[in-house]
Amino acid sequence: MSAGSGAVCGAAAGNVSCGSGLCCSETGFCGTGTSFCGGSGCQLSYAPACDGNQTPLGNDTSKTPRPLFGNVPYGVGISHCSVAGKVALSFDDGPYAYTTELLDLLKKSNVRATFFVVGNNMGKGHINDASSGYAPVIQRIAADGHQVASHTWSHQDLNAATREQRRAEIISNEIALADILGAVPTYFRPPYTRCGGACLAELLAWGYHVVNYIDTRDWQDGGAAAKTTYQAILAQHSPASSAWLALAHDVHEFTVHHFTQFMVDTARALRYDLVTVGECLGDPPANWYRPFTWHPSERQC
């Protein structure tokens, strides 16, 4: 029997599922709206209506050939750049309301960065749905010379997900990104950097470089310590012998309006070059995406 609106649900409530059209929130209650259904908080196994359980329109990418090309390792966590003197700025969880402003700032500063895109989080709608308005933003990210990578479909903890749920998090985001860009990224960042042995093995099979990071903590306490954290990390060694892969989030107003320019100015003052993740790993742009093939019968409806 399924639970109704306001009822308890989920693993902590005896594995009770919510009824049709309802979502099981992170705190274990059935309901509707972003606070129940949006992104990583929704308990996928107990609510079919969770955003993460919705499949985007687009061509199924799961049969795309997955050759492993280039010299960057696949299916292992990468936390540092390998080319000395580089800093790779990366932004997670978008696109969002501030992403266009961030692109304007990066263009003015002549900086290329990497965007780890989430397909359907924070109640923003599917990124390839015309009504969301995000497809042109992602197309601009690529057109401006930035790197587009995957950060899952709905920002679920992959270690807590089932194998089938992990697959859906990977493939649904591919479907949406391929619909927008005509290609599938080869770079992937697990939410919370949680990706154990089974998860890494699956990402290897799907042909992904798994990128972790040095966390600036721009998400914590309104970014209170982010500038100090970032500056201290970069100042540890000289550009002649070190390189850094920094994480921030384009879903935070602080990051776009106050922190990004600081990151750019600090890196340049310390004589680091600002590049994409692929560039900081010595990987040419041709390796950042793979083409995909499909048949009309595989169209998702």
Rank of each mutant, 00 (worst) to 15 (best):
H151M: 03
A248V: 05
A269E: 14
D215P: 12
D265F: 04
I175Y: 04
P239T: 01
Y192T: 07
G182A: 06
V210F: 12
A246R: 05
I171N: 02
L247S: 02
E253R: 07
L181H: 06
Q261W: 07
A235D: 12
N212Y: 12
N159L: 07
W206Y: 15
R163E: 15
F259Q: 02
L203F: 09
Y213R: 15
Y213E: 15
H252A: 05
V264K: 01
G182Y: 02
F254C: 02
L203I: 08
A240K: 15
A160K: 13
A201G: 15
Q220A: 15
A198H: 10
S172Y: 14
L200P: 13
N159W: 08
F259V: 03
A243Q: 05
S172Q: 12
I214N: 13
P185E: 03
F259E: 05
T162Y: 04
V148K: 04
D218N: 08
V251K: 03
A269R: 15
E169D: 11
N212L: 08
P190E: 05
T216G: 02
G197I: 09
A205N: 14
R167Y: 10
A269T: 15
R166W: 06
A269L: 13
F259G: 04
D265G: 08
D179C: 00
T152I: 05
R194A: 14
A225Q: 14
E202C: 10
W206I: 09
W244F: 14
S242P: 01
E253N: 04
Y192A: 07
A198L: 11
A240D: 15
A243R: 07
T152F: 06
T255W: 00
L158C: 09
H155R: 01
A160Y: 10
Q231I: 11
T228H: 04
I233W: 09
H258N: 11
G196D: 15
P190K: 05
V256S: 05
L204A: 09
Q231M: 11
E202W: 09
A168T: 09
A240T: 13
A168H: 13
A161Q: 09
A240S: 11
V148R: 01
A235H: 07
Y192Q: 02
S241Y: 07
A205V: 10
L204Y: 13
R166M: 14
A225I: 08
T266G: 12
W206G: 06
A226N: 02
Y192V: 06
I170S: 06
H257K: 05
I170G: 06
D218I: 05
I233G: 08
S172F: 15
V251G: 01
A226R: 06
D179A: 13
L234F: 11
W244A: 00
W244R: 03
T152P: 01
L203D: 08
Q236P: 10
Q261A: 08
E253H: 07
R166A: 04
C195I: 12
S241K: 11
T152H: 01
L181G: 04
G197F: 12
H209K: 11
G222H: 05
S241I: 13
H249Y: 00
T186M: 06
R167H: 12
T152D: 07
H151W: 01
L158P: 04
A168Y: 04
F259I: 00
T255I: 06
T216M: 00
H252E: 05
W206D: 15
L203H: 09
R189H: 04
F188P: 02
T193K: 00
S241N: 14
N212Q: 10
H258W: 00
F262M: 01
T260H: 05
W244C: 03
A183H: 01
Y187L: 04
N173L: 11
D179N: 10
